[in-house]
Amino acid sequence: MPEYDVMTDDLKSYLNGVRACRLCEHEMARAPNPVLQASDTARVLVAGQAPGNLADVTGTPFNDPSGVRLRNWMGVSEDEFYDASRMAIIPMGFCFPGNDAKGGDRPPMKRCAATWREGLLSRLPNIRVTVLVGAYAQKWHLRERTAGSLTETVKNWKAFTSEQMFTIPHPSWRNTAWLKRNPWFETDVLPELRRAVRGALES
């Protein structure tokens, strides 16, 4: 379903503003290309980090192996994940931030969240479950309730489920070693995450 078929004029106007944003243009190696999806009927919010290289090239969020892993973690199909009427995908930084010296992605541009995030989230009244992917999203949404490390914040996941928020690591294959060191994430967190997401999508 096309994104603009499932939103109010207010949200459509706001998203047009987001996609026209050029505030960080002078700091970026590539031209700005905000990548996100949203509608005011969405029931699940995926709060990620920033688009990766493939997401930037294709204009589709999580269009890479990490997206495959994330969809598996959430227990959703590709069609469900990219159905804007059901799923909002809103990273902390809307544009690909470029690569660091080691070939990894740079942190998301801070100006994105400061300029756009609160206004955008306030226009999504039907969110039932929020998936906080990685430390940047967790720090913004949880503020002082984050722990000293991502591992500790994810270990404390039960503290946030009463608010229907789930703390998870980034699904990058770079975190495969983390998953092996922390098997409780797959055995304890993922079944509850899948149950919550499925309940939100089918409610």
Rank of each mutant, 00 (worst) to 15 (best):
K110I: 05
R111W: 03
R111I: 11
R111N: 03
A114S: 09
A114T: 03
A114L: 09
T115G: 06
W116F: 12
W116I: 01
W116Y: 10
W116N: 00
R117D: 09
E118G: 00
G119K: 15
L120V: 12
L120D: 09
L120A: 07
L120M: 15
L121C: 03
L121T: 04
L121F: 11
L121H: 06
S122D: 13
S122Y: 02
L124W: 02
L124V: 03
I127L: 12
I127V: 12
R128V: 02
R128P: 00
V129H: 02
V129I: 13
V129T: 13
T130R: 15
T130K: 15
T130G: 05
V131G: 01
V131T: 01
L132G: 00
V133H: 01
V133M: 10
A135V: 11
A135R: 12
Q138K: 10
K139I: 14
K139W: 08
K139R: 15
W140H: 11
W140M: 08
W140I: 09
W140P: 00
H141R: 15
H141I: 04
R143S: 14
R143N: 13
E144L: 08
E144W: 12
E144S: 15
R145L: 11
R145K: 14
R145V: 03
R145I: 01
R145N: 12
R145D: 06
T146K: 05
T146C: 12
A147W: 01
A147G: 07
G148E: 07
G148M: 07
G148N: 09
S149T: 15
S149E: 06
L150W: 01
L150F: 02
T151R: 15
T151S: 13
T151A: 14
T151N: 14
E152C: 02
E152S: 11
T153G: 01
T153H: 03
T153S: 09
T153F: 04
V154Y: 03
V154S: 07
V154K: 02
K155H: 13
K155D: 07
K155R: 15
N156W: 04
N156T: 01
W157S: 09
W157N: 12
W157T: 08
A159D: 14
F160N: 04
F160V: 08
F160H: 14
T161K: 03
T161S: 10
S162F: 08
S162W: 08
E163S: 10
Q164L: 04
Q164K: 14
Q164I: 00
M165N: 05
M165W: 12
F166N: 04
T167E: 02
T167Q: 06
T167G: 01
T167Y: 03
T167I: 05
T167N: 05
I168D: 02
I168E: 08
P169R: 09
P169T: 01
H170S: 10
P171H: 11
P171T: 07
P171E: 06
S172M: 09
S172L: 09
W173C: 00
W173H: 05
R174Q: 14
R174D: 08
N175L: 15
T176M: 05
T176S: 11
A177R: 14
A177E: 13
A177W: 03
A177I: 07
A177F: 06
W178I: 00
L179E: 05
K180V: 11
